[in-house]
Write a protein that binds this DNA or RNA. Structure first.
Length: 277
DNA sequence: AAACATTCCTGCACGC
DNA sequence: TGCGTGCAGGAATGTT
C-alpha cells in the first residue's frame, strides 16, 4: 500500500503519539514477513525509549534512546496502528496482527500485514548506511540533488520506460505505482516513453512535479486505494484527488479525452492519450 | 476471479 | 572467455 506520502503521513502522526513513550514489551505472533523477524526482536527491544520517528524512502525508522532503530517497511498491505487498550479489544485481528509492542502508557503499537511482504528489524544507528535495503536507494525527492540535471544523468542511454525508472528506488526514493502515474500525467509524459528519449525540459518538469505531487499527497494524509490506514485507523484523503490512477475510461480533467490503461513493467499504469506525449 | 499500494531474485543478451 | 550491466519476468501472499 504505502508509498512515500503514506509513510510520511504515518511518521508525522507517530512523531506526536509515541515519541517519549517506552516500549515495555513486545510479542511476535508470526515472524514470517518478507524476511523473517529476528527471533530475539521482542526481548531485545524491551526497555527501549522512543526518541524520534524518521523516514527514509518508504521505510519508517523508529529511533530508540540507545542508538538503535526499529526499521519498518509496510510492503503492499502492511499497517502500523497505535491502539489504546481501553478502546480496543474489538480492533484485534488475530490473523494478521503479526507483531505488537506494548508501551508504558498502556497503549500498543501493532504491525498488521495480511500479505506479509513487509519487513521489521532492529538495527544499530551506526550501521544505517550499510543496511542492504537502504544502501542503494537514491536521493529523497525533496533533496537538492534531485533535479533535472540528476535525472538527465541517470536516464541517458536507458531503454526502459520512464515510469519504470521513476519507480526504481535507486533513481529516487519513495515513488510507487500510484504516484508515478500521477506525476507523469502532470508532467505530460507518457509512462511508456523510453527514459533515454525524455527531453531535458520534460525531466525538469518531472523533478518539480514529483515534489509537488508528493507534497500535496502528504498534505492529504496519503492515498487510500484499498486498505491503507494511518496509525489511528484513518484512510488517506488524497484518493479523490488522483487524476489518472484507476480512472480508465473516465475523461481527462484537462482535455476530456478518455484515460487509458497500459501495463508497464507488469504494473498497471494510467495516462491521457492526448495530454501525454 | 483478475488484480493488487512492493521488493527481490533469476536468467538472458549484450558490450568490452 | 569472463565479467559487469541492463532489462524482463516471476515469485513471495491473501483479499476483494
Amino acid at each position: 500500500m504505502p508509498e512515500l506520502p503514506e509513510v510520511e503521513s504515518l511518521r508525522r502522526i507517530l512523531a506526536h503519539s509515541i515519541v517519549g513513550r517506552t516500549i515495555v514489551g513486545a510479542s511476535v505472533a508470526d515472524p514470517r514477513l518478507r524476511r523473517a523477524v529476528a527471533a530475539d526482536l521482542a526481548t531485545s527491544i524491551a526497555g527501549g525509549a522512543i526518541t524520534g520517528v524518521q523516514r527514509r524512502a518508504k521505510y519508517l525508522l523508529i529511533e530508540l534512546h540507545d542508538e538503535r532503530l526499529l526499521m519498518v517497511h509496510l510492503g503492499m498491505s502492511g499497517s502500523l496502528t497505535h491502539r489504546h487498550a481501553a478502546l480496543d479489544a474489538a480492533g484485534f485481528d488475530p490473523r494478521h496482527d503479526h507483531v505488537s509492542f506494548r508501551l508504558d502508557d498502556g497503549s500498543a503499537l501493532v504491525f498488521n500485514d495480511p500479505r506479509r511482504f513487509g519487513l521489521m528489524k532492529l538495527i544499530a544507528r551506526a550501521e544505517l548506511a550499510a543496511i542492504a535495503e537502504l544502501a542503494a536507494i537514491g536521493p529523497e525527492p525533496f533533496a537538492r540533488e534531485f533535479d533535472a540535471a540528476y535525472l538527465w544523468k541517470v536516464t541517458r542511454g536507458r531503454a526502459t520506460a520512464i515510469k519504470n525508472l521513476l519507480m526504481d528506488q535507486r533513481t529516487v526514493a519513495g515513488v510507487g505505482n500510484i504516484y508515478a502515474s500521477e506525476i507523469l500525467f502532470r508532467a505530460r509524459v507518457r509512462p511508456t516513453r523510453r527514459a533515454g528519449k525524455v527531453t531535458r525540459a520534460e525531466l525538469a518538469r518531472i523533478a518539480t512535479i514529483t515534489r509537488q505531487v508528493l507534497r500535496e499527497a502528504i498534505g492529504g494524509g496519503g492515498t487510500t486505494f484499498r486498505s491503507y490506514r494511518d496509525s489511528r485507523g484513518q484512510p488517506g484523503r488524497y484518493a479523490k484527488r488522483l487524476q489518472v490512477y484507476d480512472r480508465e475510461g473516465q475523461p481527462c480533467g484537462a482535455c476530456g479525452a478518455a484515460i487509458r490503461a497500459v501495463v508497464v513493467g507488469q504494473r498497471s499504469s494510467f495516462f491521457c492519450p492526448k495530454c501525454q506525449k
